[in-house]
Design a protein around this nucleic acid. Structure first.
Length: 583
RNA sequence: GCGCCCGUAGCUCAGUUGGAUAGAGCACCGGAUUUCUAAUCCGGAUGUCGCAGGUUCGAGUCCUGCCGGGCGCGCCA
């Protein structure tokens, strides 16, 4: 049971009773009624703004609503106090038994604690990474990859039917350049000295084995032929090879996406036409001339009639071209088709995770989805800011020209998958993030992953010790659920339960806000509370978890920390990090 | 010139979608270790929430205008 939802129902019922008694008007709107934990715990367990929210509708002063309502709430089961504070807040205290029962909820749910049916199985598509298939992933891709993956986990947790998707940009000129680069590597594999890779092509060593693979398969079949003859074959072979590389990179981070959607497929199978036709059918396409861009006007700008989408009718700044001067579709046209395809597949809700440098693209994408779906679909574009790498207090400088990008693989190999995943969530997505190699390798609380893992490992350690020292004490979750929780009397123990009881709501709020970093922050706080309680046992031996002389209390405390372990595991599962059992 | 994002303690950042006296970590000082893993914990203080208005019972949060920083701005992808 979510205590806040429960209290909210009780408040609404109580207001109804007051209405029946003629004290307040009936049929009031409770949309803005909030029930939450007060920031200051001394104010109580839950606070509500009910009287403040209803004051306008009721035409009464806040205190005149709060007084009878508080009196009524004070009479409810589990409520031990109801005080009016400030301008008209009602602060409630709930009995320790009520909270102990919440620990029972945790133990019954296990690592599934916090699962929600909030989304009710609604379909949602989360697109992330979508890096050009021209090379291995580097640190610039990592943040979006982790963010998207954890968001997908989080949305599943609250009941969405999630599709994790990757859009392969395999139709543009960059894959032609990839193919040309590989052709050079192919010639090299056949013994030719190709010298330095020409400007504009991809110099990376990772293409050497691709050239060799074609040489091994086809020999010199492609050697003395025109580019038009080999380009398509080299392109498709190279893209396949690069996507294998990308998938392996993602796998090293524990990421496995469901759909890899090819842009070129849209071009080949008339997908673009079908997407654009859909807009045309709504009368949203016309031929017109665009103004030159503001600011720096390109030298070769010339006004020209173009096929345009009326994006400005859907919140974009200007209408957007769908065809280039040579008659080919623009990249944007492919994006129209791509989102059209997602809608056709039944995804009314979509999330695109993009780098911050795509900020200028957001409005037109949202306009497309709005237009194509007659405002039924929604697209949420989440931008991830840059990651700066720090080593020894210095910024690690990377440049495209020098080709010294730190790859995703190097990052994972140096600090480990769990650390990378967790560290990427230590900031909200739209704030820049510093990734400090020194902190990432640290085995202390400077390293948030370690800190949370350590809490989990400590709990496992206690349970192992009990199995060893008190073998007659059953420590399986089903046994612990039957423990006499009334033995938990210390305020620190009850506070820990309260913190756990906030988990389901934290999960739902994080999912709704599309902010997976909140999970990481929650886990850090829960771990902190656990470590504090642990140390309290050092100072006061009668607060230790294992009390050999008092087995019922020991069992109750084991139930408490097993609950913490479940919540930690539940959260780490969303982040995609293994809960460590030993360290 | 325009659009989007950001601006909170000395530093790095949270801030429960509008709630009460704005919070953590780092750094700095002091304390706890015959341990259920001290890889941890406890105590100590700092704020013009960039500036100025507005909306209302109530603003770090919403609106407007400035200031400062980042990203982007024709058919590239």
């Amino acid at each position: 049971m979510d205590p806040y939802a429960y209290i909210r129902e009780q408040i609404i019922a109580s207001v109804g009773a007051l209405a029946d008694a003629g004290i307040v008007p009936s049929n009031m709107d409770f949309a803005n009624l909030a029930v939450e934990a007060p920031r200051d715990p001394s104010h109580g367990d839950v606070a509500t703004n009910a009287a403040l929210v209803l004051t306008k509708q009721a035409g009464m002063k806040p205190r005149d609503i709060a007084a009878p309502l508080a009196e009524r709430l004070a009479g409810l089961e589990h409520v031990t106090a109801a005080d009016i504070a400030g301008p008209g807040f009602i602060n409630l205290r709930l009995s320790d038994d009520f909270w102990r029962a919440r620990l029972g909820d945790v133990l019954a749910a296990g690592p599934g604690y916090g699962d929600s049916t909030q989304a009710n199985g609604a379909k949602i598509n989360v697109e992330y990474v979508s890096a050009n298939p021209t090379g291995p992933l580097h640190v610039g891709h990592v943040r979006g990859a982790v963010y998207g993956d954890v968001l997908a986990n989080l949305l599943s947790k609250v009941g969405y039917d999630v599709c994790k998707e990757y859009y392969i940009n395999d139709a543009g000129s960059q894959v032609d350049e990839l193919a040309r680069s590989v052709h050079l590597r192919y010639r090299e594999a056949l013994g030719e000295d190709i010298g330095a890779m020409p400007e504009g092509l991809y110099p990376g060593d990772y293409l050497i084995p691709v050239g060799q693979a074609i040489a091994a398969r086809d020999g010199d079949d492609w050697l003395n032929r025109a580019e038009t003859e080999w380009l398509a074959e080299f392109r498709s072979f190279s893209v396949d090879a690069m996507m294998d590389l990308v998938r392996a990179d993602l796998a090293s981070l524990g990421i496995e996406q469901d759909v890899f959607f090819s842009e070129e497929g849209l071009h080949n199978e008339g997908g673009i036409t079908s997407g654009v036709d859909s807009l045309a059918g709504k009368g949203l396409i016309y031929t017109g001339v665009l103004e030159p861009p503001k600011g720096k006007t390109p030298e070769d700008w010339e006004p020209r009639p173009q096929t345009l989408f009326k994006a400005s009718e859907f919140g974009d700044d200007v209408d957007r071209p769908l065809k280039k001067s040579d008659g080919a579709w623009t990249y944007f046209a492919a994006d129209v088709a791509y989102h059209h395809d997602k809608l056709q597949r039944g995804y009314l809700q979509m999330v695109d995770v993009l780098g911050a440098d795509h900020g200028g693209y957001v409005k037109r994408l949202k306009a497309v989805v709005k237009a194509l779906s007659d405002d039924q679909g929604s697209l949420d574009v989440r931008l991830c800011q840059m990651v700066r790498l720090l080593r020894g207090g210095e910024v690690v400088v990377m440049s495209k020209r020098a080709g010294n990008f730190v790859t995703l693989r190097e990052l994972v190999e140096e600090v480990g998958r769990d650390v990378v995943r967790f560290m990427m969530l230590t900031r909200k997505n739209d704030a820049p993030l510093d990734f400090d190699f020194d902190a990432a390798r640290e085995q202390s609380k400077d390293n948030p992953v370690f800190y949370v893992q350590y809490a989990h490992a400590r709990i496992c350690s206690v349970l192992r010790r009990v199995a060893d020292e008190l073998p007659e004490l059953a420590v399986e979750p089903e046994n612990l659920a039957g423990a006499d929780l009334a033995r938990l009397t210390d305020s620190a123990e009850i506070d820990l339960i309260k913190q756990m009881a906030a988990w389901p709501r934290a999960v739902e709020a994080a999912a709704q806000a599309r902010e997976p970093h909140r999970i990481a922050f929650y886990l850090n706080e829960l771990a902190s509370s656990f470590h504090a309680l642990w140390n309290k046992g050092n100072a006061e031996p009668n607060l230790r978890f294992i009390m050999a002389a008092d087995q019922p209390t020991t069992q109750a405390r084991l139930a408490l920390i097993k609950g913490v372990a479940f919540v930690l595991a539940s959260g780490l599962a969303i982040i995609g990090v293994e809960p460590a059992e030993t360290m």
